[in-house]
Design a binder for these strands. Structure first.
Lengths: 199, 199, 199, 199
DNA sequence: TATGAATGAGAGTTCATTCAT
DNA sequence: AATGAATGAACTCTCATTCAT
């Protein structure tokens, strides 16, 4: 019991720190969010951060991994039904930029830039993204199946889709976005239909 | 004459510093490029930099302005002829990601992120982008005219186009891009035809 | 019995921690050896360390005490026979820098430096060293007796001897030592004969 | 003139920082002396330190180099005359541990320990010491010449001499040294005569 | 007795910016 | 106009030590 409560407490701390990191990174970017502030936001000190994680970068990576994994899992559920239209709408919801997703897009962009400049970081990042494209490709293939359409080079299609989504995210990010949430959903849907499924 | 040659000299210094800033920002990012290195790259010292510009941010902004203005001007030329197909190809060339454009996309992305986080910066940035969308919208309208197609909400279409382009740039930026330069041109062309012109 | 086995267990833990500290201090120095690593090396955690010792410094002191006591005891045995030549060789062996002795010299040096800078530490250190000089002086006197030579100011002679020995240790410590183990034994022997015994 | 006063000012700052580093390193050791305190001692801030030197280690190295060079130069002068006795006394004065020399010995010891543990540092350190032994060897050879004695393996003899000197320095370092300054001079002289020159 | 989560002071280093020259 | 010495705040990360469990 003692053991358990210790583990629980640790897990709770970890959770708070991760949540704080999520918030801070999204608000101030990877470079702009200091470990000090992240820890403070979580109600701890720097030391707690470093006894839970190896480095600032490690936490960011963790966050990114988690997010991608969730997105893929949600996409799998979304494309599990039998109605194409419903599946399409669910996929749009998975990839639209409401809620947490917008923050994540910003972070993803920051990390893309970081990877473009830090060799040591690039390898791990490339692997992560490659895997994400493959997995998303599978989900897109299921979507195409539902539409009764063929799907060639699914990972490549996934790249294009994510590129568009990221670009939209950057627009939504602006202090005065050109696009509304509805625009984004419309754009994603149009992209999926026309560019990917050629409907 | 002394007056004139002084001004010339000053202008030359400015030019070299701006060119150096362009290179350095593209290579290392806004935060990663230090004023010291920029000045050194230009063959001067920090002091020259601060004699010519108010801050690091100011130069970056200048760079962005220049680039957007050029892109718009090139787009105007591109859509000036009478053949839609030729105009489309020229537009693709203006916005593809070869040559300097790729660097610029990275910088644009960095600035978008910066704007999302610095209020003081956001206002000027918003204005710049809004204007860019309007101008690009005009060029897209001319393209639509050549295609004999209607163009609604041109600035909004411009937003979508730039979003996609930026997303593609981010992909090309990766250590192992999913997309080839040909893919990019194909994607841009397809986007212009299908999404914007509905051909 | 429970009491006894508990004490035994505690003693075992202490022993392992002390051995680990010995190894770590010698390898990385006093400052460079973290309590964390020492405890881990012993197969425990920080907590065990602090349950058994007051501080990092305290353990180091303990180590030094033990070592000096052993050196003196070995010196007493070495000078216990009746043949001067054999006794001299044994003494050289006690103070040469092979085996554990070299590590000890490094640690001794580190502590000397520490004592020069920490007042609180200095008092205990001084006492320890003074005692060591006196004891070694006695052993040197016995050596002199065997040689049939007088011995004046034995503690002072001991100081000089140890100074030389420590200096040699520092040389041996270098990545590319100037002196071989044989050189060291020769130098110690020569020093004992010429400087201390004036033979 | 402007240029000159700038250079002068810089040189003055450098000088003050070096002097402060000397003091602080000697007082608190390499690790114990923080850049912050060194800069403050010199009347500047950390920033000034880093615009004058690459790193803390670099300054220490500089200090060590300077000191060794001076010691060698003084040794050359000391052995330049024609009277052996006078030369010997001068050499003793060069290597006795009064004045700044004692501090230097401590620092030298600290760096020896550092070199024993940091590979990256070891190379430069080894070179420095090797050179020092050779140069001191030359001075000792000149001393031997004056005494009309042969000198074999001068660099090796130099190693032994410096080892002894360092050991003595460590003793003098103690809060309650066993040896007086006079003892040190006596010991150095004896060592030079007996061990090195076999007089 | 031993654990290990958390502290918190402090480390070395970087860099945009200022200002006397 | 250009220099570059100096600032000073901010950064990531380390570690001896404490204490509730």
């Amino acid at each position: 019991m003692t053991r358990l409560s210790r583990e629980k407490a640790r897990e709770a701390t970890r959770g708070k720190l991760i949540a704080a990191a999520r918030t801070c990174f999204a608000q101030h970017g990877f470079a702009g969010a200091s470990v000090d502030v992240i820890a403070e936001t979580a109600g701890y000190t720097k030391g707690a951060f470093y006894s839970n994680f190896d480095s600032k970068e490690a936490v960011f990576f963790l966050l990114l991994e988690d997010h991608l994994a969730q997105e893929i899992a949600r996409g799998r559920s979304a494309t599990a039904g039998s109605s194409f239209n419903e599946a399409l709408n669910r996929m749009i919801r998975v990839y639209d930029l409401e809620g947490e997703s917008q923050d994540w897009c910003l972070l993803a962009v920051e990390f893309a830039l970081h990877a473009a400049r830090s060799e040591s970081f690039a390898a791990r990042y490339t692997e992560l993204c490659g895997n994400n494209h493959v997995q998303l490709g599978r989900n897109l293939t299921r979507l195409a199946d539902l539409a009764g359409r063929p799907m060639n080079k699914p990972a490549y299609k996934a790249s294009k889709f994510l590129a568009f989504r990221t670009g939209l995210a950057l627009d939504r990010t602006a202090p005065a976005p050109s696009l509304t949430p509805g625009d984004v959903r419309g754009a994603l849907g149009g992209f999926l239909r026309k560019v990917l499924l050629r409907i």
